[in-house]
């Protein structure tokens, strides 16, 4: 009670009141674009353009924009959802498994050139995607992998590898070694120790890395622009980017498509916030 009382008194001080007003003012400004986007998405565009989305008096609310976007004849969001999932799920699972194996080796074993390899891995994290796409496109075109989901999945898997190795290595470094040594004395081989002991204990780390990798692949745009040219293969980001016509812009349709596109990462973020932030901090602060 005493603590609560003193907290309350703190909040009533004039400077602290001012701070609260500023902080919430900024939060409101930051939220405004999303409110606007949402308002535009649930109202007929004609009404919005005449009266403004901020004008709620006598507003009509409708799901028309969502229905139109979901089944859009050239940029169907439904198909985009499907394609994005087909790309994002394997592009998460494959690198998480392979990178975790490598990260474990970096964390626990000593081998030749280890520190140089690890330095290389961290350096790769800084590279822009632009540095790989030209030769990759040419090679994949000759292999018939352009415009295919396996092709883009390979690209995402390889591209995500570096940061996941880095992240998981830091995670493994924090696991107690005694448990693995106990398993070693108990007769387990290195691979058995990895999948019977280390993997189950690393689930929080794996989940963090997966959550981040999945939302990044879901949100990815540049690789898709290069490797998925055929509109039927387009993922969701490509579809909403194309919804804006050159001359006539139907903001209602774009807004609804945008809400669809960000719903998945937002949902992942809200449901798995703890893991999302942990992964995010592992990606930045430790690095």
């Amino acid at each position: 009670m005493a603590v609560r009382g003193s907290r309350l008194r703190l909040y009533l001080r004039p400077d602290v009141v001012l701070i609260n007003v500023i902080a919430w003012g900024i939060a409101l400004v930051w939220l405004l674009p999303f409110i606007g986007l949402f308002m535009v998405s649930v109202r007929p565009y004609g009404e919005v353009i005449v009266r403004g989305w901020w004008n709620i008096a006598g507003a009509t609310f409708t799901m028309d924009n969502y229905i139109k976007a979901w089944g859009h004849e050239s940029y169907s969001i439904a198909q985009g959802y499907m394609n994005s999932l087909i790309v994002a799920l394997p592009s998460t699972v494959i690198p998480i498994i392979t990178a975790s194996l490598a990260a474990y080796a970096f964390s626990r074993f000593s081998f030749p050139l280890k520190s140089y390899l690890f330095l290389t891995i961290i350096l790769l994290m800084a590279l822009p995607q632009q540095i790989v796409v030209v030769p990759l496109f040419l090679a994949m075109r000759s292999l018939g992998l352009v415009n295919t989901f396996p092709g883009i999945i390979l690209v995402h898997s390889g591209w995500g590898m570096a940061w996941i190795i880095f992240f998981m290595k830091n995670f493994f470094d924090l696991l107690p070694r005694e448990v693995e040594e106990a398993a070693k004395v108990d007769g387990a081989s290195d691979f058995k120790i990895f999948y019977k002991i280390v993997l189950p204990l690393s689930l929080p780390g794996i989940l963090s890395a997966s959550v981040l990798q999945f939302t990044w692949v879901w949100s990815s745009f540049f690789f898709e622009l290069i490797f998925l040219v055929d509109p039927s293969k387009w993922v969701i980001t490509q579809r909403i980017a194309s919804m804006k016509g050159e001359y006539l812009v139907d903001w209602g349709l774009i807004a609804a498509g945008s809400v669809f596109a960000m719903a998945v990462p937002l949902l992942v973020y809200v449901l798995l916030q703890k893991y999302y932030i942990r992964g995010f901090m592992g990606w930045t602060v430790k690095g």
């Binding site: 745009f221 596109a261 937002l266």
Partner: peptide, 9 residues
């Protein structure tokens, strides 16, 4: 939120 949504959006 700005960090979570696709940059395209």
């Amino acid at each position: 939120i700005g960090m979570v949504i696709p940059m395209v959006v």
